[in-house]
């Protein structure tokens, strides 16, 4: 299985999906890793009013990961000493010196971050006018897969999706409708209407990918559960593909010493 190492020399450009919007609620804080020759360890957070921001995941004070921090109002606080940062990365408050106005030089390193079409996106470059998808779907789930992105794209082209709600679950062949740098849309025909699934790829390492999956809007809970189970099965087959090939090789070596 070829892992796509080549793209990792320079690192990815443009917007990178890091979470489904529903998984980063108001006052939510999470860590996101962006692959590259120098992988980035980021904190991504959402303020009370809903604004999303991304910083280097270290407090300028003592290097503590800000992803352990907490959000009050429009500020992210470090868990270690409670230093507070605004969405621009600037330090607003130092609890050990409550009457001091922190100098503007104390600043977390920021990245461009936006909540678009149900996905939180991060970019290494501040002015990135990459076209982002407009799918209008509903967040299903994010899941990590121990496989590179190229392999996963190939396997998705051959998948079958559950499309009906009856107990004898109907599966329909899916086809890739569109494909972009970060994402692809799968389409499967059911009796009533087409089921669409959008998969966004976040490379973690050359052999590890986070998939952020959205579906057509307003699907019933039963179908979403079926699709979530499809995602589990898809991951299982992707991760066990190599194992099956390897064990087959081992068997053939045993029979032909």
């Amino acid at each position: 299985m070829n892992a796509d190492h080549s793209e990792f020399v320079e690192g990815p450009d443009g917007w990178i999906p890091v979470a489904l919007s529903v998984d980063l609620p108001e006052a939510g804080v999470m860590r996101a890793v962006i692959a590259g020759a120098q992988p980035l360890d980021l904190v991504v957070w959402r303020s009370r009013s809903g604004q999303v921001s991304a910083f280097d995941n270290r407090c300028p004070h003592r290097g503590m990961r800000l992803s352990f921090g907490f959000v009050r109002g429009e500020r992210l606080s470090c868990i270690y000493h409670g230093w507070q940062y605004g969405e621009d990365g600037g330090c607003r408050h130092i609890p050990a010196h409550p009457d001091m106005t922190p100098p503007t030089s104390i600043c977390a390193n920021t990245y461009a971050c936006q909540d678009h079409d149900g996905v939180v996106w991060v970019s290494k470059g501040a002015d990135n006018s990459d076209d982002l998808p407009n799918f209008g779907g509903q967040g299903l789930r994010s899941l990590s897969v121990e496989r590179g992105e190229t392999v996963l794209r190939k396997l998705l082209a051959e998948t079958h999706l559950p499309v009906s709600l009856t107990s004898d679950m109907q599966m329909a062949e899916a086809a890739i409708a569109t494909q972009t740098r970060t994402s692809l849309v799968l389409e499967a025909r059911s009796d009533a209407k087409n089921l669409r699934l959008m998969v966004h790829f976040q490379k973690i390492t050359p052999d590890r990918t986070m998939l952020h999956v959205q579906t057509s809007p307003e699907l019933p809970a039963e179908l979403r559960i079926s699709l979530s189970r499809w995602a589990e099965r898809f991951r299982w087959s992707a991760e066990n593909l190599g194992t099956m090939i390897n064990s087959w090789d081992a068997t053939s070596q045993e029979t032909h010493p």
């Binding site: 360890d41 995941n57 270290r58 003592r62 290097g63 503590m64 990961r65 352990f68 868990i79 270690y80």
Partner: peptide
């Protein structure tokens, strides 16, 4: 859990 999450792990 604080100490294990300071970056870098070495003291600058």
């Amino acid at each position: 859990s604080i100490l294990e999450n300071q970056i870098p792990r070495l003291l600058p």
